[in-house]
Design a protein around this nucleic acid. Structure first.
Lengths: 147, 147
DNA sequence: CAAGCACTTTACGTTAACGTAAACCTCGTT
DNA sequence: AACGAGGTTTACGTTAACGTAAAGTGCTTG
């Protein structure tokens, strides 16, 4: 959120063959406009788990989706730790014990609350911005400059 | 967003005399559930400007509002630097020159875009969460546990 | 075969946003 | 007079999320 360049929400689709099925780290990095370093870091943090072909990392569709979700979470202000918690629990779901599943539901409810609060914040901030905008335009009109 | 305790959106209103007109740092800190350290830090970063009574900082209504807006901005992932940029330009508005005002409008548009992207992100993430939730409940039902 | 990519690992550096600790003042009480 | 509750300054510490640099590997292309 610090960058001024207003990055896109999702990957630059590149409208490429959806059947690629696997990607190099560089491809993925370009897709989502992040550096390879970031992707490696996410792996180290347990968010991605590409397989190797010799030395090189190979990412499949699943990894791409995870990266997408991770970045989305980040844009919403979630920490990598929080994101990992949900993501890994999701993966452990089918054979997860009841305790874990209840915990998961708990976390999800928490996240949902979080989103609701953000929605409210956005509503309020939008209004603030509109107000400031109005005032600025008014001052500009006072200066003879049409806004 | 890292805290698990799901803090409230706004100040705990305490339903107190609105005519207080000024607050100590401790009062403000309790109101917004932050530490005094945080408030002093925001001052140092040019976001707050309380006056002094001897040694002590005294905050007026205006400072309280600024703090509120600052924290809201933070919840939406804006950096203190970004927040300061808007806030200080806002204050300089009445006598601001045209260049500055245009710049302000520019920034506001940027922020608005940001919010729109966040709205979309929230929409998407909500759906993801609901999906995971459904799947988890389903597995739980399979285990004989009613969700 | 040299050059140039794209990738790898290791490791130290950086920034934002505070936390934490120490040492001090200044009240109003006890 | 001693104390505790709140405030103050100064300054070093911490964490997350990468950035950046160095040094090496492996392919393929002029």
């Amino acid at each position: 959120m610090t960058q001024t360049s207003a990055p896109a929400n999702e990957a630059s689709q590149e409208a490429l063959p959806r059947q690629h099925r696997h990607y190099s780290i560089g491809e993925l990095a370009r897709m989502f406009e992040v550096t390879p370093r970031t992707i490696r870091f996410y792996e180290q943090e347990g968010l991605l788990a590409p397989y190797r072909e010799g030395q090189k990392r190979i990412y499949r569709e699943k990894d791409r989706v995870r990266l997408k979700l991770t970045l989305r979470g980040k844009r919403l202000g979630f920490s990598l730790a929080e994101i990992r918690e949900v993501v890994t629990m999701y993966d452990a779901m089918p054979d997860g014990n009841a305790r874990q599943l209840w915990r998961l539901l708990e976390i999800l409810a928490e996240k949902r609350d979080n989103l609701e609060r953000q929605l409210e914040d956005i509503r309020l901030m939008r209004k603030e911005i509109d107000d400031v905008d109005q005032r600025a335009r008014q001052v500009l009109r006072g200066l003879g400059q049409e806004a």
